[in-house]
């Protein structure tokens, strides 16, 4: 063998490296560098107004903890994420359980259920903006028609409109509602795949063993789906925790910062407010939480793998 020819093993290594390279480049350029940059910014006093960076250690982080808006954003982020998660899990399970049955026109129902997922996030958020409009909201119109709004003693208040996005509690609820609506399709499809994966033998065995519908569901099916729920939780959590679109389009964090979440706060502080260092510190707060949640759930999935 001459020095110029490569052995089979070397050629394989070369091929493998050249195939992985684009992915590595992609990750480094679009994820690695921004993260490193964010860490550097967060430890320095950087603003959009001046090219100078001054190292200030953890001051940005310490200052954040003293800011009520930041603490409120942390609280809101968790509240919105966990509520969305619960909504998606419960409704997704119900929806998947209904969809798994043989029905006529099943494909049409599945298609319709998937629609919210395929619509661009900003477009659908804008559609919701109209649904929740302070004057023209069709939801209000229905509520008025039902007599639940617009007269003294009505469940939703005696104004003619609910002002969904204008009152802090309703605004948070609206954001959670829209998030659930956006993520339910994905959750349903994941859980549906899990349900389809439960062997028919086992369900029939449970039926013969005398278990009724709910015993089968809660003692056999759902415990078997724990890894699938793990995946759903992970996807939903990461998605909602880092999502900026819904809040940005619906409320921009208002009224009076009542619906501010970490991504919007980071954007408003760092980009619009010009205080890059503070903004980076806000955004970085997402990182340990996401890492912890991901590790926890992946460990759970691996432990329960069957």
């Amino acid at each position: 063998m001459t020095a110029r020819t490569l052995s089979q093993g070397q050629r394989d290594t070369l091929l493998a490296m050249s195939m992985v390279l684009p992915a590595i480049l992609y990750i480094t350029l679009l994820l690695g560098i921004p993260i490193v940059l964010a860490v550097v910014y967060s430890l320095n006093d950087v603003t959009t107004g001046s090219p100078v960076m001054r190292y200030i250690g953890l001051e940005n982080f310490i200052a954040l903890l003293d800011t009520p808006d930041f603490m409120r954003a942390v609280g809101n982020t968790f509240l919105i994420t966990i509520s969305t998660l619960l909504g998606v899990l419960v409704l997704g399970t119900i929806q998947a359980e209904l969809l798994v049955r043989p029905t006529r026109g099943k494909w049409l129902i599945r298609f319709l259920i998937l629609l919210p997922w395929t619509a661009p996030a900003s477009l659908s958020a804008i559609a919701w903006l109209w649904m929740l409009d302070s004057t023209f909201s069709p939801i209000d119109w229905v509520l008025r028609g039902l007599g639940l709004l617009g007269h003294p003693g009505a469940l939703f208040g005696d104004f003619d409109n609910t002002f969904w996005l204008g009152r802090s509690g309703f605004a948070l609820f609206s954001i959670i509602l829209v998030n659930v609506w956006r993520l339910l399709p994905l959750g349903t499809v994941i859980i549906l795949a899990g349900l389809n994966g439960v062997p028919r033998d086992i369900l029939e065995q449970a039926e013969i063993d005398g278990a009724g519908y709910f015993r089968r569901l809660f003692h056999i099916v759902l415990p078997m789906l724990i890894p699938v729920f793990g995946v759903t939780i992970l996807f939903t959590f990461v998605f909602v925790f880092t999502d900026i679109v819904t809040v940005f389009i619906l409320t921009r964090g208002g009224p009076a910062n009542a619906t501010q979440v970490l991504p919007t706060l980071a954007f408003f502080t760092g980009v619009q407010g010009g205080s890059l260092g503070r903004g980076a510190a806000t955004a970085l707060f997402l990182l340990p939480v996401l890492a912890a949640v991901s590790i926890l759930i992946l460990a759970l999935i691996r432990r329960r793998e069957i």
Binding site: E204, I208, P223
Partner: peptide, 29 residues
Amino acid sequence: PPRKRNIAMVFQSYALYPNKTVAKNISFP
């Protein structure tokens, strides 16, 4: 329905409940 017939069945795959221990499998019926 099957549960009203008081029938026991052993499937080819044995269809054991994978999330339950042997004791819990046996006690399920």
